[in-house]
Design a protein around this nucleic acid. Structure first.
Lengths: 335, 335
DNA sequence: TATAATCATGAAAAGCTTTTCATGACCTTG
DNA sequence: CAAGGTCATGAAAAGCTTTTCATGATTATA
């Protein structure tokens, strides 16, 4: 590995001049510049990022904490982030939170300690106060997948209320009157927003909101399964369920199958997220799609702006994303 | 951020002594040590990883190049890697190859240039020579998901031949005689090994290998769809298909559905990988499971050994993993 | 008791850049 | 032509550790 000193010797200039040529930080005589560039090429010189980081206090790394590396949700986000950050010359340092407050905090500390220039955080367990505390305010940070009022302009998230509204509205349009909802954990803002959207659609259709039709789940498959069983045990008139996410819907499918209820003939199902499995379940699930990749890209763009790498104003980046209704075959038209 | 100098002043020692206490590189008088530790605590001192990396030539980062960040396959691997490397104090720098030779090379160069201590590479497009060339031999590297003879002791992979053998054998045991195979791209060693396993099972059952029953796909869903259509057009007697991976099997399901052939009554299907969707397709797919997380862990352990962080001998890490047959409902018993 | 060996510590160098400050050459302007 | 300004460049410092080498003190050995 050649150093800047060797280059400077070969080009018969000082290291400072080489630095100036490479970074364009000061004007350099055209001939000198050429000599330098020639030497750089001949020695295949590449600046040592560590030494550079030490002096500029910019490591070129962005820390990303996702909830679960292996989930399709996080994969989509990561992909989006990478596609923006890498061309900008920055690298991703990833870590995961595994839905545990402690892990999440540890992951954030870990990355902060590694001198990341910025942080992108998509976690579920920490509440708002914990999150704000652990982030601190000495590192530019973007929150993904939830809205935190204190840092509204650095949150990239889906309009969950609207997605739930769209889902419920669709069920109503298809002629359903008795619509249940299995929510996610209500400690999460997302889940609460989805519940709100469900309520708003009912209200708009002049249908009463009945708490007996709502159960709280955990976003996991087993919870979809057990919640639906509990719901059925209540023996309420029922024609459709709005499931808080796809994974729970897959569990629901199983529960309904065991009760010899077919989807959508006996019960209609609509869910949320549009993971791959939603397309291949039987029947394929109608669901609400989140533009994960686009959201990841936006988060990365916000980061670039915060780091002043781009001239665009921060406001111009889209931060609230629109959910999209994906119609497949799990909802029956009763009209 | 406190520096080592401030700590040394507070503890009335030289920076060298602080370093010695913190790294245990030389004996330090017990009392001095206590003074130093006290100062470290009071100032909440944390060594600057960049400065440290500059002198030790160890950044503490491991570069990971996966084929596709958003795929469930890579997610599982990443999870495994993270679970070993993070406790060892190392961080992950990720990048993806997107099945393109150029991207893969760029990603590896990108990470090497960032002064990673080591590399874990799971890519598909580069052939062996390209891969060896781009890796070079100045950075410890582990290859995942394929076997490269030149660096046999640094490859962590599945016994693909055996998995394919298990799948095909299972079909035969269930009484199938006309078994087709839609392979992955035969440029990939994995695909060739799976084809070999298929052949071996046939041979062992004294069934003839007929090339008309084998089509080459791309591992993508659409390719499963089109390959099956082409296969059906050949009008061969057929009772089962061994699909090269789950994604192609999902495409196959669609093609068969369009031909009004039901699975498994008319055609049986078995696949490879066991992604989440395999469990929820209709019917749920029998498939071959890869222990992704365990493989990721192993890869990370090999890295740690290569970096001499652990005393275990390199040989003791498991590097060839056993596939597991997962029986669901896509295969009919004809016996 | 004198000499050798061991131990604890500090000063300074090394690692590689970027950046500040200074300098000398050249040009412009009064 | 002298004074002031601009331009291109170099020397040296700064950024924060780790590590080498040297030193003085203490202990063991002959």
């Amino acid at each position: 590995m050649a150093t800047i000193k060797e280059v400077s010797q070969q080009a018969k200039v000082s290291p400072a001049t080489v630095s100036r040529v490479l970074n364009g930080t000061a004007p350099v005589n055209a001939l000198t510049r050429q000599r330098v560039l020639k030497a750089v090429k001949e020695l295949a010189y590449q600046p040592n990022p560590l030494a550079r980081a030490l002096v500029t206090k910019r490591s070129g790394g962005v820390g990303v904490v996702v909830n679960e590396l292996s989930s399709p949700f996080c994969g989509g986000i990561l992909w989006g982030i990478e596609s923006v950050l890498e061309p900008a010359g920055m690298h991703l340092m990833v870590s995961s939170g595994h839905s545990s407050t402690q892990n999440e905090k540890a992951a954030i500390h870990f990355l902060k300690n590694r001198h990341c220039d910025a942080l992108i955080v998509q976690i579920e367990a920490c509440n708002e106060d914990e999150l704000l505390a652990v982030i601190g305010n000495n590192i530019p940070t973007v929150i993904m997948g939830r809205h935190i009022p204190e840092m509204s302009d650095r949150c990239v998230y889906l309009d969950n209320e609207k997605g739930a509204y769209l889902a419920t509205q669709f069920l109503i349009q298809q002629g359903h009157h008795h619509i249940a909802h299995i929510s996610g954990p209500l400690a999460l803002q997302d889940s609460r927003n989805r519940l709100d959207g469900y309520k708003r659609a009912l209200q708009e259709a002049k249908m009463d909101y009945n708490p007996h039709y709502v159960l709280e789940g955990t976003f996991q498959e087993v919870s979809g399964y057990s919640s639906v069983k509990r719901l059925l045990a209540r023996q309420l008139p029922l024609s459709a369920i709005f499931m808080g996410n796809d994974q729970m819907a897959l569990g629901a499918l199983k529960a309904l199958y065991e009760h010899k209820l077919s989807v959508p003939q006996d019960i209609s199902l609509i869910a949320y997220d549009d993971i791959l499995a939603a397309r291949y379940s039987y029947p394929p699930l109608s669901t609400i799609r989140q533009p994960l990749e686009a959201m990841g890209k936006s988060a990365a763009e916000v980061i670039l702006h915060l780091l002043d790498k781009e001239s665009l104003a921060l406001k111009e980046v889209q931060k609230v994303f629109e959910p999209e209704l994906v119609i497949r075959e799990s909802v029956m038209n009763l009209c």
